[in-house]
């Protein structure tokens, strides 16, 4: 992030507009990584709605498959646990 701002470079009144998604990549927290088996995925959306980050979404282009943004995934395993057909595997991070 470079040098920290001086007192008079910060907005007055302890205000911020910077979104966490732009600077705080929580993917580094992860020990287990969720991997979706697309051959079985039914695109039901349960993983999308239950991911607490949220970092799973339906791709807006292509065939609209569900994708995980590993920049933010903390590896909680909720998606794998809640997937009705159990097509998400939690694998140890390298």
């Amino acid at each position: 992030m470079g040098r920290l701002p001086k007192w008079n470079e910060m907005q007055e009144g302890f205000i911020t507009k910077t979104l966490s998604e732009s600077i705080n990549k929580t993917g580094t927290w992860r020990t287990f990584k969720p991997i979706i088996d697309y051959s079985r995925c039914t695109k039901c959306g349960w993983c999308v709605i239950y991911c607490p980050e949220p970092c799973i979404s339906f791709e807006s282009s292509g065939d609209g498959k569900v994708v995980i943004d590993y920049d933010f995934c903390k590896g909680c395993g909720i998606c794998a646990e809640e997937c009705p057909i159990k097509c998400i595997d939690m694998v140890m991070e390298e």
Partner: peptide, 22 residues
């Protein structure tokens, strides 16, 4: 939209308090 009154670590606290004191 903006966020007012959140949390900060020691790296920002001093500057914030100094700013209102100044």
């Amino acid at each position: 939209f903006l966020t007012i009154g959140g949390f900060c670590y020691p790296d920002y606290y001093f500057e914030t308090r100094y700013q209102s004191s100044k």
